[in-house]
């Protein structure tokens, strides 16, 4: 009985660790831009493009790595566009984010249709394999959950640790945070505000592209329309919830991934609950989390605003 329970638990926890990756990557990307004051809502669109290009790259070149790199490149280009329109042209960040979301939404399906066409049998790519870490994966329970996953799971966790170090332990991190809190003060100390925003937007875009590419490479093996299923939007809520801090975002990802896996598990298990209600769990959880986030968490002071050094601003 205890053995069975343990196996159940390990299985569940492994799936959760598998599911955190898109949330972690997309949210850390959002966090990175947000810390310099760039707030984008194009996550869902960039992730869709990442999923589409990642799949197509892997399908055409026969290598998952190519797909991942192409997805990151596409994400970076979206980030570049976001930074150019908002930082250089000073257009409304939210509206540009929406426009890029639309663009990505259309582009993802269009690319797929151009390359693959309309087929009954969608082409498949191999999914990412688990890479057990020698030694560590032998630890009972924990080894299976943490150290016997595909390498993007490791990457997502290491990235979170790295970003934490970068943000709070280095002078670049300090400058980066200063840009989001008070660009004017940062500017007066010689920090290049525009450059900071370009770099974080492109880096963030890369992570979102990667987050999208993860979906066909781990779950489905192919691209389907709208396959991101709101994960990009949830990532925004998650970033708020995590207070724009890498370590809390990692924890929050566990929660959202847990809800996602739980909804699937209960669905398979039956229990007489209509599956439609279970499917709404991640979204309802997001709304509930937002209630807490707005109360207890603070966002960068200059979030969502463009900085014009030639203008006098209050902050």
């Amino acid at each position: 009985m205890a053995d069975q329970f343990q196996a159940q638990f390990v299985g569940f926890a492994r799936l959760v660790m598998l599911a955190i990756v898109p949330y972690v990557l997309a949210s850390q990307g959002t966090m990175l831009g947000g810390r310099t004051g760039l707030f984008s809502v194009s996550q869902e669109g960039i992730m869709l493009v990442g999923a589409s290009i990642g799949f197509l790259g892997a399908y055409l070149y026969g290598s998952l790595l190519y797909g991942l790199l192409l997805a990151m490149l596409a994400g970076a280009l979206f980030g570049l566009a976001l930074a150019y329109f908002t930082t250089t042209l000073k257009m409304n960040q939210f509206v540009i984010g929406l426009a890029l979301f639309f663009f990505g939404l259309g582009l993802s399906t269009l690319l797929y249709k151009f390359v693959v066409g309309i087929t009954l049998q969608p082409p498949l790519i191999p999914t990412l394999r688990s890479v057990p870490i020698p030694g560590l994966s032998q630890i009972p329970i924990l080894g299976d959950i943490l150290f016997n996953q595909n390498w993007l799971v490791y990457f997502a966790i290491l990235l979170s640790i790295f970003l934490y170090y970068l943000l709070y332990q280095t002078s670049i991190g300090l400058e980066l945070r200063a840009v989001g809190e008070s660009p004017k003060a940062a500017d007066s100390l010689g920090v290049n505000v525009s450059l900071m925003r370009y770099v974080t937007a492109m880096g963030g875009g890369m992570l979102m592209g990667l987050a999208g590419a993860y979906l066909p490479m781990v779950y489905t093996g192919t691209f389907t329309e709208g396959m991101v299923q709101g994960r990009g939007w949830i990532a925004i809520a998650l970033t708020f919830f995590g207070g724009w801090s890498p370590h809390l975002i990692l924890l929050g990802s566990l929660f959202f991934a847990g809800v996602e896996v739980l909804a699937l598990r209960v669905q398979v298990g039956g229990f007489g609950i209509p599956y439609q209600f279970l499917l709404t769990l991640p979204y309802v959880a997001t709304i509930l989390v937002m209630i807490f986030a707005t109360r207890w968490v603070r966002s960068p002071a200059f979030l969502g605003q463009n900085y014009d050094r030639e203008k006098r601003t209050l902050t």
Binding site: V41, F94, Q229, G230, W233, I236, A237, F240, P274, Q276, F277, L279, T280, P282, Y283, V284, T286, I287, M290, I291, T294, R295
Partner: peptide, 23 residues
């Protein structure tokens, strides 16, 4: 009541409605 940003909540309500109509 809580001052929650309407953008995210309205998007989330879309996803909830997909399940609702399916039901």
């Amino acid at each position: 009541r809580f001052g929650i940003n309407e953008i995210l909540t309205t998007v989330m309500m879309n996803f909830v409605s997909f399940s609702f109509v399916d039901y």
